[in-house]
Amino acid sequence: MSEEKLYAVKNDRGQWADPGYTFGSGAWVTPDKAEREEDAKHHGGHVVMLVEEPEKVVITKEQAKIVENARDAEYPATYISDHSYADEERLIINAYVNGYIVVKEKKYLVYKVLGGKQKHEQFAQAYRSSIYPGTVSWILNNEVTNRSFAQFTEAEIEHYGLQDCEKEEVTDDAD
Rank of each mutant, 00 (worst) to 15 (best):
V170W: 01
T60Q: 01
K117I: 02
E74R: 11
C165M: 13
R147N: 09
D173I: 13
T171Y: 09
S137V: 00
S25C: 02
I101Q: 14
F149R: 04
Y132G: 05
R36T: 03
R36I: 04
G20V: 03
D87C: 14
E169T: 15
G20A: 08
W138F: 04
Y85P: 03
D175P: 15
E62P: 09
T153Y: 02
M1R: 12
E168A: 07
K112Q: 10
S25T: 11
A40T: 04
H42Y: 05
A64F: 08
D18M: 07
Y100D: 06
V170Q: 05
E158V: 15
F123E: 00
F152M: 03
T30R: 08
Y160R: 11
S129T: 04
K65F: 09
I139V: 02
S25M: 07
G116E: 05
Y160W: 12
K61R: 15
E143G: 04
T171A: 10
Y96G: 02
H83E: 12
E121I: 10
H42M: 05
R13C: 10
D72K: 15
E4F: 06
I101A: 12
G24L: 03
S84E: 13
P31A: 10
G116S: 05
G26W: 01
D164M: 10
K119I: 08
H42N: 13
H43N: 14
K61F: 07
K65S: 14
A40K: 01
G161S: 13
A8M: 05
R71S: 14
V136W: 03
L114A: 03
A73P: 13
D82T: 11
I93K: 08
S81I: 06
G20L: 02
V102F: 07
E143I: 00
A73R: 12
T60C: 08
K56S: 12
Y132L: 11
T135F: 00
V97G: 12
Y100L: 10
V113K: 04
K33V: 07
N142I: 02
A34Y: 01
G44F: 05
E37C: 06
S2R: 14
Y132S: 14
A124H: 00
Y85W: 07
D87I: 14
V170R: 01
G161D: 12
K65L: 12
V51K: 12
E121G: 10
A8V: 13
G26S: 06
P31L: 02
N141T: 15
D72P: 02
D172E: 13
L109Y: 01
W138M: 04
P133A: 08
W28S: 13
D82F: 06
L109V: 03
H42E: 08
A126N: 00
T153I: 02
N11K: 04
N142C: 06
V103I: 08
K167S: 13
I93Q: 11
V113P: 00
K112A: 02
L6W: 11
A150V: 00
Q163Y: 00
V170S: 05
V51E: 12
I80Q: 01
I101H: 09
Y96L: 09
T171M: 15
K117M: 07
A34T: 06
D172W: 07
I139L: 00
N98A: 12
E156C: 11
P31K: 03
R71Q: 15
I131F: 02
D18T: 08
E55Q: 12
I59R: 06
V29S: 05
E53C: 08
N146P: 05
Y100P: 03
D82M: 14
A155L: 12
S129L: 01
